[in-house]
Design a protein around this nucleic acid. Sequence first.
DNA 1: GTGAAAGCGCTAACAT
DNA 2: ATGTTAGCGCTTTCAC
Lengths: 361, 361
Amino acid sequence: MSSTSEGTVPPVKPRGKTRGTGRPTIRDVSQLAGVSRMTVSRVISDPDLVLPATREKVLKAVADLGYVPDRVAGSLSSRRTGFVALMLPTLTNANFAAVAQGLTEQLREADYQLLIAYTEYNQAEEERQLNKLLARRPEAIVMTGASHTRNAARMLMQCDVPVIEIADLPSQPIDHSIGFSNYEVGRTAARHLIERGFTRIGAVGGSQEAAVRDHRGEERMRGFEDELRFSGLATDLVLRHGSPPLSYDHGAAAIAILLKRDPGIQAVFAVSDLSAVGVLMECQRRHVPVPDKLSVMGFGNFEIGGEVNPPLTTVNVNFRALGQRTGALILELLGRDGDTPPHIEDIGLSIIERASVGRVK
Amino acid sequence: MSSTSEGTVPPVKPRGKTRGTGRPTIRDVSQLAGVSRMTVSRVISDPDLVLPATREKVLKAVADLGYVPDRVAGSLSSRRTGFVALMLPTLTNANFAAVAQGLTEQLREADYQLLIAYTEYNQAEEERQLNKLLARRPEAIVMTGASHTRNAARMLMQCDVPVIEIADLPSQPIDHSIGFSNYEVGRTAARHLIERGFTRIGAVGGSQEAAVRDHRGEERMRGFEDELRFSGLATDLVLRHGSPPLSYDHGAAAIAILLKRDPGIQAVFAVSDLSAVGVLMECQRRHVPVPDKLSVMGFGNFEIGGEVNPPLTTVNVNFRALGQRTGALILELLGRDGDTPPHIEDIGLSIIERASVGRVK
DNA sequence: GTGAAAGCGCTAACAT
DNA sequence: ATGTTAGCGCTTTCAC
């Protein structure tokens, strides 16, 4: 690690804008190796096209110069950037991060690179970010969510690359879509609680009056409330409170409100596991036994839900697999020439039953 | 949303590779507006350089055509890509996501865009990703961590853009650095527990034999162990177990081992809050009262740590601020011409005292 | 305030 | 298997 005692000085990074030296270009490599620039280009992109002997000469020149190909120039010339754009509401949510992870896993092999933008759940910001993404000429665009500004939707329609809307099955897909129905998540959760005999059932989600809104979460709440209504149950314990991103403290505050509104509440669904864990923690503090007194259910199958006491029953969607499927679809789409009909896929959902939900005896 | 009854068909996204139509270029705009391409370029990049009347004409043509400037071409020509590269171990860690968030907040205004790569705590992967990042000609490079392969270090030395190593103060910084000492985190945590009178103190971290290693976490363990030793305490309860990324289940499994090794253990430090929360949950299940029987301390000030019962004492580093400071430094560096001396900054750390740590009476 | 010419570093297409 | 030519869409530079 440290320099030898021979008086060798540790290497020092050249600093500032040393224009004039600049980085080596493909031309420098070609001159050093005594071949044409095209040969160098071939060695980089498809080595088999070149005689082993020539290849070695070139590779040596590349190594000696520390040449790193310029994909900016390459992209312009070949009209292939190798970028896939990904629009996310936020990075600080394990499930969205898992989507990015899954996508990357698929795309890495094929040498595509993710260009991530995030909106903080703000549609105007989404439009602004989309513009910047489009300027980078991605070869495919992945949008999380199906709700866009008028302008953003137009831009997505007009751009000549595949668009994939994920994590929400849009009623009017722009192009391709892989996801699940958040509305069904809500209904499924409600059905699960109703089947277990509960009649005083509540839910906690975000306020629809908040400046920041989570359309997916609102859909889950709507599905939940509808299912209660269809089953002839009251919906007065469906609470919309606070603004996204909803986390632990949201659940803690919300359950306090509901317990006050009706101390006899039997079960509650939270739009997110994080919020549900908040409910659980608040119940611990108030010595409200879960599930004996109150059953709690969440959404998203976040890791923490499986670790708390009691572990949390949750509606599960495999977000990592969602990212992987999306990546696979992109590879397929970009492999094909010409026309491909829209691919619409529901990856479904499941309930993970754990101990936080009981049953009426 | 739906089409009118006038027989208007809903717009349909043109699919496949409709080469021939293609996107509008600056030339299309210039022709439609009846000006030169340079004038269009000026309207895009610095509108004040152009007469209001001309500007309006151009803007109208831009809107009519749905023109989106091509930054690939722009980057090649101007030799400014507007990219800042960010290398992260993983996206699925709230603190690293917070770094990205903080960075973005700063860079957004100045129209820089993050290019994120992640390594899954794997140095060979880091080198591969670094190559791909460099090919995109970022104007600055942010590396998380200070431990690189020989090749990666060389590439970072040779590239002619600022390099900032963050989240770990390197002993041999390549260029700039903003971070904190993970070793000091460990020592600080140990001191905190020792000051409270504990003598049978343990720690849980990752195995150094694992294929995947977290050098930052290992530093924290080293600092912790050293401090115990300096204070004349035994280190037989310092447990290195499992491979990163360490999460809840790691803590749960590790504390089980330590409780077996010495049921009299009084306090434990976990390299990460997630692991510490796992310890807490396992203690709940085993009815080991925290902090009365066992004190627990973590690192990272993850949100969940403040929500569990009892809330977790932790060593806090403001990662979001770290990202912001890094963004500010980059803006400063890129604003300057020529030479800038290395900027080395310790953002420090603090202890957040909560109820999970008690005191010997 | 606006335009014309040249060229960024690479690759597609064709030629040998 | 390798080389030559032309040009990707923009911005720099300099002229008017």
